[in-house]
């Protein structure tokens, strides 16, 4: 066990706790009624943006590892990926709850028509559905069961998910696309770094 492995032993729980902070903050502010005039919109936006941020952090691990030679970083990747999935679940559930619970009941038909008719929801839903198999196969047992090569092939879907997530954000904006553009640029850099290495 080298020094860096030792460091990781406490970095990992630290990251685990820090990654929960956006949710804690959201809950504290909700209980204090400090989520602004439109709390539902705030919750939808925050859970969505953190799902995207953790996804990009997950994609950052490999280039960072190569840059620093700190190979143990890989041990953080699964956790970051699962946090992305966690916030995506909260995002999806808030959408069901705040946009589709009407007079106390969940209306299915508008959900389906939203997914089919609204392009930004279509791509967002697509990204979420694609995340499911990745989350399910993220444990060591499933990794062994699938075998390294098949597992890796499956998990390349993360690139598609990230692209869909950025498009989802871009398409829902009314006019000022400066924020989604920032995420698109970061994603482009992360994807480019991989391509560069492959060449």
């Amino acid at each position: 066990m080298n020094l860096k492995t030792l460091q990781l032993n406490w970095i990992k729980p630290l990251v685990f706790v820090v990654a929960l902070l956006p949710l804690v903050l959201l809950m504290v502010n909700a209980s204090l009624e400090q989520l602004g005039a439109n709390p539902a919109e705030k919750i939808l936006h925050e859970t969505g943006i953190w799902a995207l941020r953790f996804l990009l952090l997950t994609l950052l691990i490999t280039p960072l590892r190569r840059l620093t030679g700190w190979h143990d970083l890989l041990r953080l990747r699964r956790m970051l990926g699962l946090y992305s999935f966690f916030y995506a679940c909260l995002h999806f559930l808030s959408w069901l709850l705040f946009d589709h619970v009407f007079a106390g009941t969940l209306a299915w038909q508008p959900i389906v028509s939203d997914i089919i008719k609204r392009p930004y929801i279509t791509v967002g839903f697509f990204a979420f559905v694609l995340l499911l198999p990745l989350a399910i196969t993220s444990n060591a047992y499933m990794m062994r069961y699938l075998g390294g090569r098949a597992w890796q092939r499956l998990h390349r879907a993360v690139y598609l998910i990230a692209i869909a997530a950025v498009i989802h954000f871009w398409w829902l904006v009314k006019l000022d696309i400066s924020e989604p553009v920032i995420y698109a640029v970061i994603l482009a850099i992360l994807l480019f770094l991989r391509r560069y290495r492959a060449a």
Partner: peptide
């Protein structure tokens, strides 16, 4: 078809 009516109670402004 629906709208979020802001203000009122915290919970009522969450739902449409």
């Amino acid at each position: 078809k629906t709208e979020r009516k802001l203000g009122g109670g915290f919970f009522s402004s969450l739902f449409k």
